[in-house]
Computed example of a mutant assay.
Amino acid sequence: MKDKSFKIIKSSGEKADFSLSKLRRSLFSSGADELTVDNILNVVRDELYQGISTKEIYNRAFALLKKSKSIYASKYKLKKAIYELGPTGFPFEKFVGALMTYSGYSVKIGEVLQGKCVSHEVDIVAIKNGEHIVAECKFHSAKTNTCNVKVPLYINSRYQDIIAEKKNTKECPNEGWVVTNTRFTLDAITFGSCVGLYLLSWDYPKDNGLKDRIDRLGLYPVTVSTLITNREKQFLLSRDVVLCRQLLNDSFYLDHLGISETRKTKILSEISMLCNTH
């Protein structure tokens, strides 16, 4: 195929130039080796056409990765897997709570804290080595949704009300967090930085966003699995099994689903490799 510029359609509806290097980076992030990545790039490039959507490119790359090795496909679909924690935000809260638990925090979900003016239901309270965090999780089921400045403005007012009530006590939090599965606008980041809120999104802070933390800790949501059906995933989420690592410890849930021993072995083998456990 001759080198030429292709316009692709992003999920937002915007047009952009196709970036081969960006696709290459995303494929390498799945753990695929160089030969596999090069083979997939060659196939995808040959199938490009003007106006192709990013979703079509992703689906094709995902299918080729899955054909090569299911664990590559599972890692590649991480961002989509986070969206699959919906449609409500509660599994996302549980997932973020689990990330913090495995990072050494003592975590409580859905705590009601009294503020100076009113009481507040807080998504996550996490404590470790002098850190006392109250975190709010903002889950979006659509990729086009972002967290604008209104979100940290609102959460900061709740955080300050709690501090006003708890100051000079050991129950007083010293960190306020806002966590989202999408992205923050520039104004949201600027405001958060100005007032001292910690903002955590898919790719923010740089090199320490949700994706980086998940990959670093091997804490993948059960929704990344390419071997578990959507119905089975919803069953697991309803039982508060949000991490692949949890399923390794509680594999009896697969028995409840009537999964055969052969398929169960394949599922546990896949998620064991994802979690880097042996």
Results as ranks from 00 to 15, higher is better:
Ser53Gly: 02
Ile228Leu: 09
Thr229Glu: 00
Ser70Pro: 14
Val195Gln: 02
Lys206His: 12
Ala142Leu: 12
Arg231Cys: 11
Leu268Ser: 01
Gln234Tyr: 14
Glu34Ala: 12
Val179Cys: 02
Ala61Lys: 01
Leu64Glu: 00
Arg231His: 15
Leu64Trp: 04
Lys22Met: 12
Asp3Met: 15
Asn181Gln: 02
Leu254Asn: 07
Asn249Tyr: 11
Asn276Cys: 10
Val112Lys: 12
Val125Pro: 06
Thr229Arg: 00
Lys2Met: 15
Gly89Met: 04
Glu93Asp: 00
Thr182Gly: 01
Ile52Ser: 05
Phe28Ser: 06
Ile52Met: 07
Met1Trp: 11
Ile109Tyr: 03
Phe191Lys: 14
Lys108Gln: 13
Ile57Cys: 03
His256Pro: 05
Asp250Ser: 15
Leu199His: 08
Ser193Glu: 13
Val134Arg: 07
Thr36Leu: 07
Arg158Glu: 12
Val44Tyr: 05
Val122Cys: 07
Ala188Glu: 03
Ile133Asp: 00
Lys15Asp: 10
Asp250Leu: 15
Ile8Asp: 01
Ala61Pro: 07
Ile271Pro: 10
Glu175Asn: 06
Ser201Cys: 09
Leu35Ser: 13
Tyr76Pro: 03
Pro205Glu: 04
Leu197Pro: 02
Gly130Pro: 00
Gly51Tyr: 02
Arg213Asp: 06
Val151Lys: 10
Val241Ala: 03
Trp177His: 05
Ser201Val: 07
Met273Thr: 14
Ala164Met: 03
Glu121Met: 06
Gln114Thr: 08
Thr36Arg: 00
Ser201Asn: 05
Pro173Asn: 03
Ser238Tyr: 08
Leu243Met: 06
Leu217Cys: 10
Gly258Trp: 05
Lys2Ile: 14
Tyr159Pro: 00
Ser141Phe: 08
Gly176Val: 06
Tyr154Val: 13
Thr88Met: 04
Pro87Ala: 01
Asp212Leu: 08
Val222Glu: 01
Ile40Leu: 04
Tyr76Arg: 00
Tyr105Asn: 04
Tyr159Ala: 07
Tyr198Met: 15
Ala63Glu: 08
Asn129Ile: 08
